[in-house]
Each structure stands twice: as C-alpha cells, then as structure tokens.
C-alpha cells in the first residue's frame, strides 16, 4: 500500500516537473505587466491584441502550414516506404532502415547545417519551401518508425486471401492492409506534426530572411524580451490541444463501452 502511494507520488512529482513551466507561461499570459519578472495584475489584454499582431499571426500561420504540409507529405512518403521496405530482402531493408535512423540519431544542428549547405550548393533560395523540405526530411523517419511495427504485425495471409478472392492489389491493400496499419499511420502523422511544430534548430538553419516560424520568432525575441502576446498564443494552442485530446479520449472510451455492452 505504502509502495503504491509512493509510486503515485513519484508520478505526480514528475508530472509537476514537466508541467511547471507550462503553468508559469499560462500565468504570464494573464500578467498586466509587460515584464516577465513582475506581476502587474490580471488582464485579458494580450489575448485581444494577439489577433491584431500581424507578425505573430503570420508566424503562427507559417508554423501551422509547414507542420501540416510536412506531416501529410511525410506520412504519404513514409507509409509507402514502409510497405516497400517490408517486402524487401533483408540486406536492402537493413540499409534503408540504417539511413532512416540517421536523422533520428544525428544531431539536429548537423542535420540543419547539412541541409543549409545543400540548398546553398544548388542555389536554392532559402525561404518557406526550404524549411518545408527540411521538415519533411526529418519527419519521414517518425512516420516509418510508427508504421513499420504495425505492418510487421499484420497477417499477410489476409492480403493473399483478398487477392485470391479477386480483389485488385490496390483494392486488397486499401480494404485489408490499410485498416490494419491505420493506427500507426495516424500516430505517425501526429508525431510528425508535433515534431515539426516544436522544431527550432533545423528551421533556424534552413529558413531565409523574412520567413519566421513561432520558434525562430521566439528565439529572436529571447534577448529583447518576449512579447506577452506570445504567451497568450501558446496558452491558446496548448489548451485547444488538451481539449481535443480529452474529447478524443472520451469518445474512444464511450465507443469501447458501447462495444463491450
């Protein structure tokens, strides 16, 4: 019993550690004082001025577009690659998986620098599209690593059976294999989206002048002081994701309850 309580206490402490800075940021978003260090009273001012701040809204828009596009494209390329790699012989598959691990294991700073050198070498102007290409590159491995295990678990015989029963390979894939690997594809997409959203280092090196994501904008502001609107925006983002996840969980729970009935 004591062990159980101690365990729960420990989990709560780690959760407190992970969420303490988030609490601080939420509090700061309601702080009347522009300074990070003083509490000047409660205000909603920053939430109102946020939507009038073109700089921040453009950065938000760029961040979301890049996250969405890079996650979608990475999911398509990565899922196709997983299926292809899964039917490969051991040696080429091992090589492909080895290369897949490079961006996962390599330092972000090296990945960022190497991509910047590539874009400069081929005279590709650094800007929105170079950031997008870079994000797709580091997102594909996350998709592959989520889809691969699912694909290995699927029963190949069902696909063969579908073919034997006259389905075209395409139809057999979308009707039989795809539903099986769907959870992996979705979690791969979500992971890719989150990673893209939270990336700073690779964007820092591959963006051109004038293109800002929230990360690079925040980094530029670290020295002169963060605009309070930024706290308001990140609070809004965080709360909406939290709500979304709670709703999805609730729905899943009620679905599984209905099924068990």
């Amino acid at each position: 019993m004591v062990k159980k309580i101690a365990g729960k206490l420990y989990v709560s402490l780690i959760i407190l550690f992970l969420y303490a800075p988030i609490l601080v940021l939420i509090v700061l978003s309601f702080n009347k004082s522009k300074s990070r260090n003083k509490w000047g009273g409660f205000t909603l001012e920053w939430y109102q001025s946020l939507f009038k701040n073109d700089d921040i809204m453009t950065a938000l828009y760029t961040t979301l577009i890049i996250a969405f596009l890079s996650a979608i494209i990475a999911t398509i390329i990565g899922t196709a690659a997983s299926i292809g790699m899964n039917s490969m012989k051991k040696v080429p598959r091992t090589i492909m998986m080895g290369v897949t691990n490079i961006p996962m294991l390599n330092a972000d700073i090296v990945t960022g620098i190497s991509l910047m050198l590539l874009f400069v070498a081929v005279n590709y102007t650094l800007g929105f599209s170079s950031v997008l290409l870079a994000h797709i590159t580091f997102n594909i491995p996350y998709v592959i690593l989520s889809v691969m295990p699912r694909l290995k678990q699927t029963n190949k015989n069902t696909y063969e059976a579908a073919l034997d029963l006259g389905a075209s390979p395409m139809k057999a894939f979308f009707k039989v294999v795809f539903p099986d690997i769907m959870p992996g594809v979705i979690s791969g997409f979500m992971l890719a989206f989150t990673m893209s959203l939270d990336d700073f280092i690779i964007t820092h090196f591959t963006r051109g002048a004038g293109v800002n994501t929230l990360s690079t904008k925040i980094y530029a502001e670290t020295r002169k002081g963060i605009k309070p609107e930024m706290y308001a925006l990140s609070t809004l983002l965080f709360v909406s994701v939290l709500l979304l996840l709670v709703i999805i969980n609730r729905r899943n729970d009620s679905i599984s309850k209905k099924r068990s009935m």
Binding site: P21, I22, V24, L25, T194, M230, L237
Partner: peptide, 20 residues
C-alpha cells in the same frame, strides 16, 4: 501526458525556467 508539453514551444518552456 509526456508528449503534450511539446505543444507549448520548447523555447518558451525553457524561458519559463528562467522565471522559476
């Protein structure tokens, strides 16, 4: 629970540690 904090920008979270 573990991934959720990433939805708040990591630079901002690190700056929040300054406050703490």
């Amino acid at each position: 629970v573990v991934i959720l904090p990433m939805w708040m920008n990591f630079l901002l979270r690190t700056i929040a540690w300054q406050n703490i």
